[in-house]
Structures are given as C-alpha cells and as structure tokens.
Amino acid sequence: MDESAETFINREDAQGPLADAVFQQVLDAIYQGRLAPGSVINEVALAQEFGVSRGPVREAVRRLQGIQLVTREPYQKARVVSLSAESALELFQMRMALEGVACSLATQRMSDEEVAQLLAELEQDRQRQLRKERGESSGPRVFDFHERIVRASGNNRIIHALCEDLYHLLRVYRRHSGTVLERKEDAYAEHWQILRAIKSRDAELAESLMRSHIERAARHLFTHLADRDESDAARRRGGRAAGTGT
C-alpha cells in the first residue's frame, strides 16, 4: 500500500476531508487513464485500494456524476464517461469561441511581469515533459496553459464556464487530443506562438492563434475518436457474425 492510501486507514467518514481526498484520488485516476473512458467503477475495489469503507467512495462517485465524469443508468453500475466524437466536437467548438475571446482579453489585461512568468512556466513545463520522455523523474504536472489564459482574461463568466465543473470533462478530452507525440510537439509550438502574440500586445492575432490551435486539436481528437468508434463497431459486427455462424 502506498503512502497516500495509508493516510486513509481507519478514517471512515463519507463527508469532509476524507471524502475530498478520495474524490481527488478517483479524479486523478480518470485524468491519468487508469480508470479508462467507459470502464465500470468498482466501488469495492477502490475502497480496498484506498483503505476506506465504501461510503467515501460512493460520495466521490456521486460528485463525479455531478461534474459529468461518471454516468450511471438505472439499475446499472457507474461508469467513467465514454468519449464520443460528436461530444468532443461540440465541446471544442465551445472552447474555440470562449478561449478565443479569453485570449484577446488576456492580451489586453496581463501585465508584462505576468506574461514573462507565463513564458517561464511554459518552458519549465516543456523541460518537465522532456525529462519524462527520457524516463527521468519529472514530478507531477501542475501547469495548465489554457486555464492560465482563461483566468487571465478576468471575465468571470468565461472563467466559470471553462474553469469550474466543466473543466474536468474538458481536461479528459484534452488529454486524449494530445496523446500522440507529434501533437504534443505541435501544441507546445502553438502555445509559444500564442504567448508571443500576447507579449506583443496583438489581441487580434492572439485570439486567431488560440482559435486555430483549438481547431487543430479538435480535428485530431475527432478523427481519433471516430476511427475508434468505427473499429469498435466493426468488432461488434464481427462478433455477431461469428455467433450466428455466418
């Protein structure tokens, strides 16, 4: 049992700090793909893994349903939300509109010091990723370029739409849009170009670059999910054909 699990032993409350800790553990498992999209959530197994009763796990699952990361049909077990091409396209279209405006506002509102800090953090995140690719210790990722831009916009409605409950679902889709190494390389270059436009105080260019960046990610993800759905459908058809002996 790892240290994080040990901290849960003998703490049985389904509310409060314990419930928050279990929620974060399950959320991290979804982010990292250890609980894959569409997979059944085994509350008993998770409770054993974390060293708690089922109460805190059940509460975590309920909260995850509230932020659309978990679904539960009547009389069915809870599952991690399945990623569909159509849902991805809708979410990324919304991101194009809102993050484009957020980027324009951030260009006008960020101080020179804030821009310089964001540039430094982008490079630090790049170095962390390179260490990870070399198999070296890189530490957990704490930098989210898109969240930083949205919050820098100062527009509370945009921040609420993209950085609160919906943020978690968006983050899962974004993770899948950047799973291919080539897309990671492109994304870093595009982030750098967006920041260069912000540093130059070119709000129109920054907005255009952000929209284009998200559009490319959307095309990449849509193609990936559509191909996956087609492959899954072909396997199901093959299984039915084998079952009927045709």
Score class of each variant (00 low, 15 high):
123 E>V: 10
114 E>L: 03
116 A>G: 12
138 S>V: 09
125 D>L: 01
124 Q>K: 04
108 Q>R: 14
123 E>Y: 10
128 R>H: 04
121 E>Q: 07
134 R>D: 14
111 S>A: 14
122 L>Q: 06
126 R>L: 11
106 A>M: 04
126 R>S: 10
129 Q>A: 08
107 T>I: 03
118 L>Q: 04
126 R>P: 01
128 R>M: 02
110 M>T: 04
123 E>C: 04
117 Q>A: 15
134 R>M: 13
117 Q>W: 12
114 E>H: 05
109 R>T: 08
139 G>A: 12
137 S>K: 14
113 E>S: 00
132 K>L: 14
135 G>L: 06
117 Q>I: 06
124 Q>P: 00
114 E>Y: 00
120 A>T: 08
118 L>A: 04
134 R>Y: 09
129 Q>I: 00
128 R>W: 03
123 E>R: 11
136 E>F: 11
111 S>I: 11
116 A>E: 15
132 K>P: 00
111 S>D: 11
134 R>N: 13
109 R>Y: 06
131 R>M: 06
114 E>K: 05
135 G>K: 08
108 Q>W: 09
111 S>Q: 12
108 Q>F: 05
121 E>Y: 00
125 D>I: 01
127 Q>T: 10
137 S>C: 09
136 E>M: 13
119 L>F: 10
122 L>F: 04
121 E>D: 06
106 A>H: 01
120 A>K: 10
114 E>D: 10
111 S>W: 11
115 V>G: 02
118 L>R: 01
116 A>C: 10
137 S>T: 14
116 A>V: 09
132 K>H: 09
112 D>S: 12
136 E>D: 15
119 L>N: 03
137 S>M: 14
127 Q>N: 13
132 K>E: 12
139 G>E: 12
118 L>M: 13
109 R>L: 09
115 V>N: 02
106 A>Y: 01
109 R>Q: 13
116 A>F: 11
127 Q>D: 13
124 Q>W: 00
121 E>A: 05
112 D>Q: 11
138 S>M: 09
132 K>I: 07
107 T>Y: 03
129 Q>S: 04
139 G>F: 11
121 E>L: 06
137 S>A: 15
128 R>C: 02
119 L>G: 01
127 Q>E: 15
110 M>N: 03
137 S>D: 15
124 Q>N: 03
130 L>G: 03
110 M>C: 08
136 E>G: 08
138 S>C: 15
130 L>S: 07
115 V>T: 07
138 S>R: 07
107 T>M: 04
114 E>A: 15
128 R>K: 08
139 G>C: 13
110 M>S: 05
130 L>H: 10
120 A>Q: 13
106 A>R: 00
113 E>M: 00
135 G>H: 09
110 M>L: 14
134 R>V: 06
122 L>S: 07
131 R>L: 08
119 L>S: 05
121 E>V: 00
125 D>Q: 09
128 R>N: 04
138 S>Q: 12
119 L>V: 08
116 A>R: 13
130 L>E: 15
113 E>G: 00
122 L>P: 01
113 E>H: 00
111 S>F: 10
127 Q>S: 10
135 G>R: 07
130 L>I: 10
132 K>W: 10
119 L>E: 13
138 S>K: 06
112 D>C: 03
107 T>W: 02
133 E>G: 04
131 R>Q: 09
